[in-house]
Nucleic acid binder design. Structure first.
Length: 230
DNA sequence: GCGACAG
DNA sequence: ATCTTGTCGC
């Protein structure tokens, strides 16, 4: 699939924040225009040292969740991990893997926040803009916002609010297991994001697309990041 | 100044 | 995120 280059990635933190403030005005939320038939999951893995990063994008049919496409990529990182600027560290390698996907998925789930971000511009929003593809942010932990207590039963959901604004939802995907933080990335609504994430959970805390991408990218990294070819 | 802080 | 073994609870 095609990826847009909206700006350079090797920026200072100050310039990166300026880019986020400019781009957040281009992010929008609206109901999906067509039923979801394919949904992808993307994740990144880092080498302990050496600055090597790896990415995996796995595409599944929905709602049956059968794997249909897979792409891997390796790269070197220069941008440090700074809370709030994760996309400047992970987007380049993610874009590299996404470019190898033959057809644009109906939705892509990313391992991180969407609008539940200090400037409403989390990784999922940023990726949604450069791919022009509906995207969802599904993080394992909170970055910003407050929320009421969440019932222990699977399917329970409460709103995540930041500065008086609803920025996402806290979703229990398994009984008695820490919840995930779901927020829309781009071209999708919070309600649809939550429905799709729950629809992709098959007995584990993380939705299958993201969970499988995590397994795939770690296997790839441990193999030395060598792309298999026949 | 003191905590909080996606991966 | 990564480095690591077993272990407690549903």
């Amino acid at each position: 699939m095609k990826i847009r280059r909206l700006h350079p990635w090797n920026l200072s933190c100050k310039d990166a924040i300026a880019v986020q403030r400019r781009l957040c005005g281009q992010v929008w939320q609206a109901p999906l225009k067509k039923p979801v038939r394919t949904i992808a999951g993307a994740d990144v893995s880092y080498a302990k040292e050496g600055g090597k990063v790896y990415a995996a994008v796995l595409v599944f049919s929905f709602p049956d969740l059968v794997l249909t496409d897979e792409a891997l990529a390796a790269d070197t990182v220069e941008f440090p991990y700074v809370p709030g600027l994760l996309s400047f560290r992970e987007a380049p390698v993610l874009a590299k893997a996404l470019r190898k996907i033959p057809r644009k998925p109906d939705v892509i789930i990313f391992d991180g926040q969407g609008t539940a971000h200090p400037r409403g511009m989390g990784l999922a929003c940023h990726m949604g803009l450069i791919t022009e593809c509906p995207s969802i942010g599904c993080a394992k932990t909170r970055l910003v916002g407050i929320h009421p207590r969440l019932p222990e039963t699977r399917g329970s959901t409460v709103l995540l609010t930041d500065q008086g604004r609803v920025v996402g939802g806290v979703v229990r995907t398994r009984d008695h297991v820490k919840p995930v933080f779901v927020s829309p990335g781009h071209a999708i609504t919070l309600e649809e994001s939550i429905r799709l994430v729950l629809g992709c959970c098959k007995g584990y805390k993380l939705p299958e697309p993201t969970r499988q991408a995590h397994i795939a990218v770690n296997r790839f990294r441990l193999e030395g990041g060598r792309l298999a070819h026949c």
